[in-house]
Design a binder for these strands. Structure first.
Length: 798
DNA sequence: ATGAGACTCCAAAAT
DNA sequence: GGAGTCTCAT
C-alpha cells in the first residue's frame, strides 16, 4: 500500500542534466534553512514519512518546524504545494504559515491551496460535492447569530418554552454533538432526551431540516458533512487520500472528535500525517477539544515517531521555572521539561490588592512607569481570565490616557452593523436567504413590524417560497394594508434593482450604493449615540475590504469564514486580551491579574469538569506565564465585583503552586488617595471568605498578619482602609479618581486643539463639554459618564 | 409600530 | 454593570 511514486525528481533518469543540476542547486540552497534548527527540530522536519507527533512546548519553535517541514517536502521534491494538506485552527495561524513558507522558499510556496483552517478546507471540499450531501454548491454558511435565530424558530415550532430551554442552550447541545461527530440519528437516545423533556433529538433533526431548506450549513456541518460525504462515497474519499500525500496539523491538542475523525479518514491510506501540538497548552476542552487525541496519538497511529521540542527560545529562566513548576502538578500529560539557555532574569512577581479597582490601578500605573523607562507599549500585555475583567482595566487605561487595544474582542463580522450590511448583500446575491432578509426587513425602521413578518411567513410557508418572493407576491394581492404594501414593494423593487447593479458595477461600489439607497448608512448618520461614528467607520472599512476580492460571491464566502477586525498594526499600544486569545503570542512584559480562586481557576470549570477542569485551568495559567519573555507579573484582589456585587475572594491556589525560588512577592506601590468611593459599596466583611493556606506564605513575606494587612496598600494600614468596615461606613467621596488621574497622568505640554466650553465626543464616554485644558489632557464633563480626565487624542470635536 | 424605562439574569473560553 | 426582554405609553 505504501508505494510512493517519484519521490525525488533528481533520481529520475529521464531528466536532462541541466534540469538535474538545477534541481540539485535548488536543494543545496533550500537545505540552508535546515541549518538553524536544533537537533530535535531537525528531526521533526526530516522525519517526512509515516505518522509523526511533534510535542512542541511553548516557545520551542513550533511554527518554524511546521513551515520548514513544508518547505522541506517541496524542496526535496517529495510533494508539490498542492499535494500538501496543512490545517490550522485560526485564520491568523494559516496566514502566518503562508507568509513564512513564502519567506523560506519564495514563490514556489505560493498557492498552497490546501493550507487553511479546518473550516476553510472543509468548505472547499463541500462546495465541490454539495449535491452529494443534499446541498447546492452555493450554500450559505451561517454565523452564530443566524444560528441562534434559527434555533429560536425551531423551538417555537416545536412548542418548547424558550424560557426554560433557551436557544443558546440548544445551540450548545447541538454544537456539542457536532463536535463529537454525531449526526441527529447518532445522538445517544439518553442525551437526546435530556433537553426539553425528551425533545432534544427531535430539535436537532428539525434544526438540520431547516438548514437544508435554507441551503445553509453551520460551522459544525463544515466538518460533519465532509465525514458524511466520505463515508457514503468511498471513491471520493480515496481521491482525497491520494491527493493529500502529506498532511500537517497545527495545534493538534485542540482537535475535537469530528476533526479527529476527519483527519483519520484522510490519513488512513498514506499515513503521512504530522501532528504538532502541546498537551500542556490544551485549553479548549469546553469547545469539544479532546486532549485525548494527542495523548492517544501513538496508539491511533502505531509506529508513530514522537519528537519532543523542549528547548525554549522565548522566556527567561525564572519564568520558565514558574511555568514548569506549575504545570508539573497536572497528571494527564505526556510530560516535557522546558529548558532555556537564557539567564534567570527577573523573578515572577506576585502582588495583592485590596480590590479589583486597586489592582487595575496598580497594573495601569506600573505599565505607565515601564513606558516612562522606555519600554515600548507594544511589548506589554495584560491577560485576563474572563472578558468581564477587562472593563475595570480599560477604564483605568482611559483615565491615564494609556493607549491600548483589545485583542480578540467582538470580531469584526459579529458587529451588528457589519452583520446588517452583510445581510443586505446576502439578500441581494441570493433572494432565498430568508435569515438575512428577516434581519433587515425593518432595519432601518420602515414600519414593517412583527405583524407584517408573520403574514410573510404564513404565505412563504404555505407556498413554499422564500420570504422575498412571498413579499413580492403579496404586494400583488390586496391582503396588505396600503401603507405596508407600498413600503414592501419599494423594498422588493430595490432588491431587484440592486441585484442588477451587482452585475453591472464593481461590487464594492454596488455595495456602497445598496447601503445608501436602503437608508442603512443614513440610519447611523442620524444616530447620536456614542458608538455611531465607530460603526460608520466599520462600514467604510467593510466596503473597502471588498475591493480585495474578485467578486461579490468570493467576498461573501470569505466573510462567512473569517473577517477579522483589520486594526492598524504596529501602533504603540498595550494589548489587553483573555488568556485564550493570548495563545501563540508573546510579549516582553505580561501582567496576569485576577489570580483568585473561583475566577482563576474558574469555579465553573471546576464544577463542570472536576479535576479535568482544574487541569485545564492550570494549563491556561501555564499558557499565560509562557507568553512572557522577560517579565511576568501576577496579581490578585481580595475583593472583587462579581455580577455587580462586591464579594471577598481568596488568592488562587495556583499562586502557591509556583516554585518559591522563581517568585518574588511585591507590595503594591503606595497611593495617595485610594478613592474612598469603593468602601461604601462593599457589603461583605472580609471574614466571610475562608482563609487559604495559599495566601499565608505570601502574606508572611509582606509582613502582614493573618486576615490583616493584605499588602495592597503600602502606607495605609488595613484597619484604616476599612477592613471589615460596615457597609456605607464612609460617605461617597466625589471624584477622588480624577484628582488622582491628574497627579499621575503626564501632560505632554503640547497645546491642545480644544478649549473649555467646547462640545466634544469621546469614543467610550460619548458626548460631553470640555471643562478644563492642561496641555493634551482635558477635563471633560460627559453627558452620561460625568467628569473625566482624558487625553485629547481620544477626543473628537463634537 | 415604536421608544423609554423597568426588570431579569447574567460573564468562561471561540472557529 | 450590562445586554436582552418586557411593559406600557405614545
Amino acid at each position: 500500500m505504501q508505494n510512493r511514486p517519484h519521490a525525488l525528481p533528481a533520481g529520475d533518469g529521464a531528466q536532462s542534466s541541466i534540469a538535474a543540476r538545477a534541481v540539485g542547486a535548488l536543494r543545496r540552497e533550500a537545505a540552508g534553512y535546515l541549518d538553524g534548527l536544533n537537533p530535535e527540530q531537525r528531526r521533526a522536519v526530516e522525519t517526512t514519512d509515516g505518522p509523526v507527533l511533534v510535542l512542541a512546548g511553548a516557545g520551542t519553535g513550533k511554527t518554524r518546524v511546521l513551515t520548514t517541514r513544508i518547505a522541506h517536502l517541496i524542496a526535496t521534491g517529495r510533494a508539490r504545494p498542492y499535494d500538501i494538506l496543512a490545517v490550522t485552527f485560526t485564520n491568523k495561524a494559516a496566514r502566518e504559515m503562508k507568509t513564512r513558507i513564502g519567506a523560506l522558499i519564495g514563490p514556489a510556496g505560493e498557492g498552497m491551496p490546501w493550507l487553511g483552517t479546518f473550516h476553510a478546507v472543509g468548505t472547499k471540499i463541500l462546495r465541490r460535492h454539495a449535491e452529494l450531501v443534499g446541498l447546492k454548491s452555493d450554500f450559505t454558511i451561517l454565523g452564530m447569530d443566524d444560528q441562534l435565530r434559527l434555533m429560536k424558530q425551531v423551538l417555537a415550532d416545536q412548542n418548547v418554552d424558550e424560557k426554560r430551554w433557551p436557544a443558546r442552550a440548544l445551540g450548545h447541545a447541538i454544537d456539542g454533538w457536532k463536535n463529537r461527530g454525531l449526526s441527529p440519528e447518532q445522538v445517544p437516545p439518553g442525551e437526546g432526551s435530556a433537553f426539553a423533556f425528551g425533545k432534544g433529538g427531535a430539535l436537532y433533526t428539525a434544526y438540520q431540516a431547516r438548514l437544508a431548506t435554507l441551503n445553509a450549513v453551520d460551522f459544525g456541518d463544515l466538518l460533519l458533512l465532509c465525514l458524511k460525504l466520505w463515508r457514503e462515497n468511498p471513491d471520493i474519499l480515496e481521491n482525497y487520500q491520494d491527493r493529500f500525500r502529506y498532511m500537517l496539523v497545527d495545534e493538534y491538542q485542540d482537535t475535537n472528535v469530528a476533526q479527529y475523525l476527519w483527519l483519520r479518514l484522510l490519513a488512513q491510506k498514506r499515513k503521512n500525517v504530522a501532528c504538532v501540538g502541546d498537551d500542556d497548552q490544551s485549553i479548549y476542552g469546553w469547545r469539544g477539544a479532546e486532549v485525548d487525541n494527542i495523548l492517544r496519538f501513538e496508539h491511533d497511529f502505531p509506529g508513530a515517531a514522537v519528537v519532543r521540542l523542549e528547548r525554549n527560545y522565548r522566556s527567561t529562566g525564572h519564568i520558565l521555572a514558574a511555568a514548569s513548576g506549575l504545570i508539573a502538578r497536572n497528571e494527564s500529560r505526556l510530560g516535557k521539561t522546558l529548558r532555556t539557555e537564557d539567564a534567570l532574569g527577573e523573578q515572577v512577581t506576585v502582588t495583592g490588592a485590596w480590590d479589583s479597582e486597586e489592582e487595575a490601578r496598580t497594573v495601569a500605573e506600573s505599565i505607565e512607569s515601564f513606558q516612562a523607562k522606555g519600554h515600548p507599549l507594544s511589548e506589554i500585555a495584560v491577560l485576563v481570565r474572563i472578558s468581564a475583567q477587562m472593563r475595570e482595566i480599560e477604564d483605568r487605561f482611559v483615565q491615564l490616557g494609556l493607549p491600548y487595544r483589545v485583542i480578540g474582542g467582538p470580531r469584526f463580522y459579529e458587529r451588528a452593523e457589519i452583520r446588517d450590511a452583510l445581510a443586505y448583500l446576502r439578500v441581494t446575491a441570493n433572494g432565498s436567504d430568508d435569515l438575512a432578509f428577516e434581519r433587515i426587513v425593518n432595519t432601518p425602521k420602515r414600519g414593517l413590524g412583527d405583524a407584517t413578518l408573520q403574514q410573510l411567513h404564513g404565505y412563504a410557508r404555505a407556498e413554499r417560497v422564500p420570504l422575498l418572493l412571498a413579499a413580492r407576491r403579496l404586494c400583488e394581492t390586496d391582503e396588505l394594508k396600503p401603507r405596508v404594501r407600498s413600503t414592501l414593494r419599494a423594498l422588493t423593487d430595490s432588491f431587484a434593482r440592486w441585484a442588477r447593479l451587482v452585475e453591472s458595477q464593481p461590487h464594492s461600489e454596488a455595495a456602497q450604493t445598496i447601503l445608501e439607497e436602503s437608508g442603512y448608512t443614513e440610519m447611523w448618520q442620524k444616530d447620536r449615540s456614542a458608538d455611531a461614528a465607530g460603526r460608520l467607520e466599520n462600514l467604510k472599512e467593510f466596503v473597502r475590504s471588498m475591493e480585495e476580492f474578485p467578486d461579490m460571491a468570493a467576498f461573501l464566502e470569505h466573510v462567512s469564514l473569517v473577517m477579522e477586525a483589520s486594526e492598524a498594526e504596529g501602533a504603540e499600544r498595550v494589548s489587553l486580551m483573555t488568556l485564550h486569545a493570548a495563545k501563540g503570542l508573546e510579549f516582553d512584559t505580561v501582567f496576569l491579574p485576577g489570580w483568585e480562586d473561583g475566577l482563576f481557576p474558574n469555579q465553573r470549570a471546576l464544577d463542570e469538569s472536576g479535576r479535568a477542569g482544574l487541569e485545564e485551568e492550570r494549563r491556561l495559567a501555564h499558557v499565560g506565564l509562557t507568553r512572557a519573555r522577560k517579565r511576568a507579573k501576577l496579581s490578585f484582589a481580595v475583593n472583587r465585583r462579581i455580577h455587580g456585587l462586591w464579594s471577598s475572594t481568596i488568592p488562587s491556589r495556583f499562586i502557591d503552586e509556583l516554585p518559591e525560588s522563581a517568585v518574588d512577592v511585591v507590595e503594591a506601590p503606595a497611593h495617595f488617595s485610594a478613592g474612598a468611593s469603593r468602601f461604601d459599596r462593599n457589603p461583605q466583611p472580609f471574614g466571610s471568605s475562608y482563609g487559604t493556606p495559599g495566601w499565608q506564605r505570601a502574606q508572611a513575606n509582606t509582613g502582614g498578619n493573618l486576615g490583616g494587612n493584605l499588602g495592597g496598600g503600602g502606607g495605609r494600614s488595613a484597619a484604616g482602609r476599612g477592613f471589615g468596615a460596615s457597609p456605607g461606613g464612609r460617605g461617597r467621596a466625589g471624584g477622588p479618581r480624577e484628582i488622582e488621574g491628574e497627579l499621575i497622568a503626564k501632560s505632554t505640554g503640547s497645546p491642545s486643539a480644544f478649549s473649555a466650553g467646547q462640545r466634544v465626543f469621546h469614543t467610550k464616554f460619548g458626548p460631553g463639554t470640555v471643562a478644563g485644558v492642561d496641555g493634551n489632557k482635558l477635563t471633560v464633563d460627559f453627558d452620561k459618564a460625568g467628569r473625566k480626565m482624558v487625553l485629547d487624542s481620544f477626543i473628537q470635536a463634537g
